[in-house]
Nucleic acid binder design. Structure first.
Ligand SMILES: [Mn+2]
Ligand SMILES: [Mn+2]
Ligand SMILES: [Mn+2]
Ligand SMILES: [Mn+2]
Lengths: 157, 157
DNA sequence: ACATGAAGTTAGCTTAGGCTAACTTAAATG
DNA sequence: CATTTAAGTTAGCCTAAGCTAACTTCATGT
């Protein structure tokens, strides 16, 4: 067996030891939360994109979704199957894809976060294109608290 | 076949049509970049964590890595296999895990970004715990340009 | 009306990252 | 030194998300 592997190697005091032991579950919770966010990121991107396409073209076709995402048609098709399964969209074969109530709600939330993240990045001096690109990843990891802070920051600035 | 699916549905002018057609590859590139970042996010977390553990305990054991990440031992083991394969770590069986030069370089980069993201979030009014949690996801999607902007922002603030 | 080509679907492969169960190895402790 | 227990490994399962190839269905233009 191995030497209890807390923080202390030899000369560290109990206080630091306790601090490290406390840190473990905290950090685990943070990583775990990031993993959860990662697992819904794609759903969010699809929901947002379907809303955009519907707004722009009056409908969201699988081909257009795939082209905008930069993936192949079968990939989009399979991901859309997941969105259906999770009750975010409906689709009649060979017709467009439609957001359900839940899907629209998600799209709205995501769209708002997307805009907010881009605005904050730009306010911080990030050029538009980089802001849009980075926001595409960042947007999925913004908690409510952070969202609020972003809003306050943009107001008072 | 279907009606060319650009932007224009009927009454939109050529200008808007062109704008949308241009938007497609741009947006595809953005999504694609986010996918790339997503695929290295885990490598980055492992590298950063191994560096932290080594600093704190003098070594990074697989068990400690797993516990801190909140995953099972076999999961950490398998992910570490990927890090080995990609030349980021070495490991002698039943001994600790060690960062290679490349691994240390990655850990340094990631650590710097992590701190910077947390600092920016806090400067924006996000409470510490939320800042740490959100940063754990956000950090993997920060481009060089954004990094620079963050640094400038923190300086002049 | 029908030929053709785009859109959509299906099947099947790959990699990644989770998990449990079962086993092996190493190390502390009686 | 033998036992016990923690650490590590291996095998095997699952889901998600990417791909290509091959097939089917639509719808348009001649
Ligand atoms: Mn996104
Ligand atoms: Mn977005
Ligand atoms: Mn992270
Ligand atoms: Mn980190």
């Amino acid at each position: 067996m191995r030497k209890a592997a807390s923080c202390a190697t030899a000369d560290m005091d109990k206080a630091e030891d306790r601090r490290c032991v406390e840190a473990e579950p905290t950090q685990a919770r943070r990583f775990s939360q990031a993993r959860t966010a990662r697992s819904t990121a794609i759903l969010e991107d699809y929901a947002e994109l379907i809303a955009d396409l519907t707004r722009e073209h009056g409908e969201a076709r699988t081909t257009d979704i795939a082209r905008r995402l930069g993936v192949t048609l079968p990939t989009a098709n399979k991901s859309l199957a997941r969105l259906k399964r999770e009750g975010l969209v409906t689709a009649r074969p060979y017709r467009g894809v439609f957001l359900t109530e839940a899907g629209m709600a998600m799209a709205e939330r995501v769209r708002a976060r997307h805009r907010l993240v881009v605005d904050v990045l730009e306010a911080l001096g990030v050029p538009t294109d980089a802001a849009e690109t980075d926001a595409e990843g960042i947007e999925h990891y913004i908690s409510e608290v952070t969202l609020k802070a972003f809003k306050r920051f943009l107001c008072r600035e």
